[in-house]
């Protein structure tokens, strides 16, 4: 995990002084908590896609996003978005990326692999997985996407407002104001419909409900 790199220099900032100053000002414990909670939810996607995800993975997502931003690997314009929004976006993309590569490059926690016998077993498993699935599409991820999208549409078919939000999402209209502009919902209508939509995970089939069970708690 990233926080195990105690003895290494981590910096190398290549950003402008203004960006570095903004980073320092916005990198607060409140941001770390918000980003960590955000990452914990997104971590479920690569996990359900078959990637081994340990309890430190969400923290790793946050730390990697912050380090890559500080180092300039990820471009960040403080005038356009907050550091938290930027980090959230980076986490979202990293989660998708890890989900995409889940089966070909399974994650093995260093502390688990450090056990000699387990290490050998996992190493063998990693190589076997890479060898057998190197050219295979991540079918689990494809199945998850197709099934979850279909189930959400099915569950929302009797809820016109929730369905309208799904249609907006499918058309890449995701920001609240943009959804309200297209649907002509009031703020209260939007909030209620969005909430109902997120609660649909309760009615997903068992295999999908398991994937969403932890997520559901955050929506309550």
């Amino acid at each position: 995990m990233a926080d195990e790199r105690d003895d290494e220099p981590l910096g190398g900032a290549s950003r402008s002084p203004d960006v570095l100053a903004a980073f320092r000002a916005q990198a607060t414990p409140a941001l770390y908590l918000a980003a960590q909670r955000f990452a914990r939810q997104w971590a479920k996607l690569p996990r359900r896609a078959g990637r081994r995800v340990d309890h430190l993975y969400p923290r790793e997502l946050v730390q990697d996003a912050l380090a890559d931003t500080w180092n300039g690997t990820l471009a960040w314009d403080p005038a356009r978005r907050s550091l938290l929004d930027h980090v959230r976006n980076a986490i979202r993309w990293r989660a998708w990326n890890d989900a995409r590569h889940a089966k070909r490059f399974p994650h093995v926690a260093w502390n688990t692999a450090a056990n000699d016998e387990t290490s050998v077993r996992i190493e063998v498993e990693v190589h076997e997985t890479q060898a057998s699935q190197a050219d295979a599409a991540p079918l689990i991820l494809v199945g998850l996407i197709v099934t979850l999208a279909a189930e959400l549409r099915r569950l929302a078919e009797h809820d016109d407002e929730a369905q309208a939000i799904l249609d907006c999402w499918a058309d890449s209209i995701v920001e609240r104001d943009d959804v309200m502009a297209r649907t002509h919902f009031t703020a209260a209508q939007y909030k209620a419909a969005r909430r109902r939509l997120l609660y649909l995970v309760k009615h997903l089939p068992p295999e999908l409900r398991e994937a969403a069970s932890d997520i559901l708690r955050s929506a309550s």
Partner: peptide
């Protein structure tokens, strides 16, 4: 887009 938005809104 639907799955991405769903996960994102929950997160």
């Amino acid at each position: 887009r639907v799955v991405d938005a769903f996960f994102h809104e929950l997160a």
